[in-house]
């Protein structure tokens, strides 16, 4: 499949609800996740707890938004893949690990913390999406 790739930051045009009508929750209210490395690249899997949450995140959690959120790590590009069977969005962030496992000077040289960082992203939630916590 052809992944969606972040290029220039684009405005959110996917929702009919205005921001003021929304409640802001952390992404962790809607999803769980895990991250890891491949060389100097990282992947972050975000898995929605519900179908409604997954449908919403497919629209909202774009590669552009994730690239913007991690701008401080200077990703050369961000790709997003969908795995609807596990209500998953898989993000691949290129060149974000400061050299990767051996060469990186960071304590998180392998991107293990990136999923936890992304789960803190503030999400303006439309009323119709019930955030359901985990099993």
């Amino acid at each position: 499949m052809v992944p969606t790739t972040a290029t220039a930051a684009s405005a959110d045009t996917t929702s009919t609800t205005t921001l003021s009508e929304r409640r802001v929750v952390p992404l962790s209210a809607l999803a769980h996740g895990r991250s890891g490395d491949k060389g100097n690249h990282a992947n972050i899997a975000i898995l929605a707890y519900t179908e409604a949450g997954y449908t919403f995140l497919c629209d909202y959690l774009t590669a552009e938004r994730v690239a913007q959120y991690f701008a401080a790590l200077r990703p050369s590009r961000v790709e997003r893949y969908e795995a609807p069977n596990v209500r998953g969005l898989n993000f691949v962030l290129y060149d974000v690990l400061g050299g990767g496992a051996s060469g990186s000077l960071r304590s998180d040289s392998q991107g293990k913390a990136l999923a936890m960082a992304l789960l803190r992203m503030p999400i303006p939630l439309p009323e119709q999406v019930n955030n359901t916590s985990s099993q």
Partner: peptide
């Protein structure tokens, strides 16, 4: 499901020397 996507790029095409797997069909 967390481990299914761990250190994966495109989940529709997971390459190994034995087979190319579509993880989204599971």
């Amino acid at each position: 499901s967390e481990q299914l996507l761990y250190e994966v790029a495109d989940p529709r095409a997971y390459y190994t020397p034995d087979v190319v797997v579509d993880f989204t069909a599971v």
